[in-house]
Amino acid sequence: MAEKKITVYALSTCPWCRKAKQFFKDRNIAFDVLDFDMCDKQKQQEALAVMKQHGGGDSFPFVIIGSDAVEGFDPERYCQLLGIKP
């Protein structure tokens, strides 16, 4: 099975975004990070469009796993989508 692409949309000010990043780090799972508040306007627009496409855009962390999205720090849901044990 091909590995699902993971992107964590985060704010540098948000403690739960740190926890979300740490979740994947702890499990040696490759993931991309986009720190929304550290990006320039254009990059933010692009990121926002993607988040909105997945039903989010206002709250962080916002984690896209394959074709699914999870708004909030929800380790159980991350595991479920990745097919791994919590």
Binding site: L11, T13, C14, W16, C17, F36, D58, S59, F60, P61
Partner: peptide
């Protein structure tokens, strides 16, 4: 100038 929620998009 405003103490926004640190986890919400301004």
């Amino acid at each position: 100038g405003v103490p926004y929620c640190p986890c919400k998009r301004i």
